[in-house]
């Protein structure tokens, strides 16, 4: 599948998701307008309502524009092809691995361990997984980085760390 076509399919998916988000925003804004019991033009729901309407409009234009360019019959079958090629791409796998590591660091390690320990575990493991350099160098770089950050922020600038 050509790159331009890939982007068109991705735009269709994005347009559908954005339309759903905008419908939620509009619905919630209407509820806020009703609940706040003030005039519409002073209501806290006014701006979100306007934004929701414009977002819906833009999403529908985006959807219409991209569906027009593609042959309707082939859209569904090509989605399957796009998804398969996306999953098999090595860069995609690396990106997903990276995101998982970053998520583990932010949501699991930092809240539950001391910052220096969480960062050390994170740096050593992520550099090892991606084979950045030899294990000894990874450990040295990680220890030096964590020590430098601690000294710079906590000792020199008295900035509390997570």
């Amino acid at each position: 599948m050509k790159l331009k076509q890939k982007h068109q399919y991705l735009d269709i998916v994005t347009a559908v998701v954005l339309s759903a988000i905008s419908i939620y925003i509009i619905t919630e804004s209407c509820w806020i307008i009703k609940d706040s019991k003030v005039k519409l033009y002073t209501s806290p729901g006014l701006m979100p309502l306007i934004l929701g309407i414009f977002l819906l409009l833009c999403s529908l234009i985006l959807l219409k524009r991209n569906i027009e360019k593609l042959v309707l019959k082939k859209i569904l079958s090509n989605f399957k092809l796009l998804f398969e090629s996306f999953i098999r791409d090595s860069n995609t796998i690396n990106i997903l691995k990276g995101i998982i590591f970053l998520a583990i660091y932010v949501f699991l390690l930092v809240p539950n361990f001391r910052f220096w320990l969480a960062s050390l575990i994170f740096l050593i493991s992520i550099m090892s997984i991606f084979r950045a350099t030899s294990l000894v160098r990874i450990c040295i770089i990680s220890i030096l980085s964590v020590v430098s950050i601690n000294v710079l922020f906590q000792v020199i600038f008295h900035v509390p760390l997570p």
Binding site: L102, Y105, V106, V110, S119, F122, L123, I126, M127, F130, R131, A132, T133, I138, I141, S145, V146, I149, F153, V159, L161, P162
Partner: peptide, 15 residues
């Protein structure tokens, strides 16, 4: 190497 630099940058981003 970016794969050494960027994880350190992310730790700084967290701080």
């Amino acid at each position: 190497n970016k794969q050494i630099l960027m994880p350190v940058i992310f730790v700084l981003c967290t701080v």
